[in-house]
């Protein structure tokens, strides 16, 4: 299979395969950034993109979870790496109570956040008529891991800590992102529909 993988780099990736490939990775990179920022904002954690020169991994006390996805056009892994302060702060915002860093609740919440991250990405990709199946999230005990070495990545800082999103993606040969407004209005995060 001659799919192309995101190239090493902070944001643009995909230097192989010409303009279409570069655009594909640029679209994914922007979507990853948007999803990361929106996810944390929903839990009261406004964040800004860290400048490339400051692209250092969140170091001591960081948690990371990943989730695999596969579809006709895209397949790969998305991961979210956060300082423990981000995990604990968003948990408190969501559940209303505090937990300690080493708790099973904090680990579970780390997985739930990456689950919500892939959900956002999947929903945004509907605008390009792209869909995929999502596996269940898994906590990564060590970092970095080989599977994310070449991933698109963006790091963010907030007043409560730092976090980074990773997207290691393979794109089907010949695929190109084309705007394809959905026929049915899409639901946003937080929306409710009663049948």
């Amino acid at each position: 299979m001659s799919e192309r993988r995101a190239q090493d780099g902070e944001s643009t990736g995909g230097s192989q395969g010409g303009d279409a490939s570069a655009r594909n990775y640029a679209v994914l990179d922007q979507l990853l950034r948007d999803c990361c920022v929106e996810l944390m904002a929903d839990y009261g954690l406004p964040a800004t993109l860290a400048p490339p020169a400051a692209f250092n991994e969140p170091a001591v006390g960081a948690s990371v979870a990943a989730i695999d996805f596969s579809g006709r056009d895209l397949r790969g892994t998305i991961a979210l790496r956060m300082t423990s302060s981000v995990v604990l702060e968003t948990y408190r915002a969501a559940v209303g109570v505090s937990v300690c860093e080493a708790s099973t609740e904090a680990s579970d919440w780390t997985c739930e956040l990456v689950n919500q991250l892939i959900g956002r990405l999947k929903n945004k990709l509907r605008s390009y008529n792209v869909s995929f199946n999502v596996n269940t999230p898994r906590l990564l005990a060590t970092f970095p891991v080989a599977e994310l070495e070449r991933a698109l990545r963006s790091r963010f800082v907030s007043d409560r800590g730092a976090f980074a999103g990773y997207l290691d993606v393979m794109i089907a040969p010949g695929f190109s992102f084309v705007d394809s407004p959905p026929e049915v209005p899409l639901l946003d995060e937080g929306d409710l529909v009663l049948f």
Partner: peptide, 22 residues
């Protein structure tokens, strides 16, 4: 976390009464 119309349609067909996106 899913907001896919196809999944919602399947749920509705199976008797679900509502859909909320996380």
């Amino acid at each position: 976390t899913e907001g896919q119309p196809e999944a919602m349609a399947r749920a509705k067909k199976c008797g679900a009464r509502g859909w909320i996106v996380k």
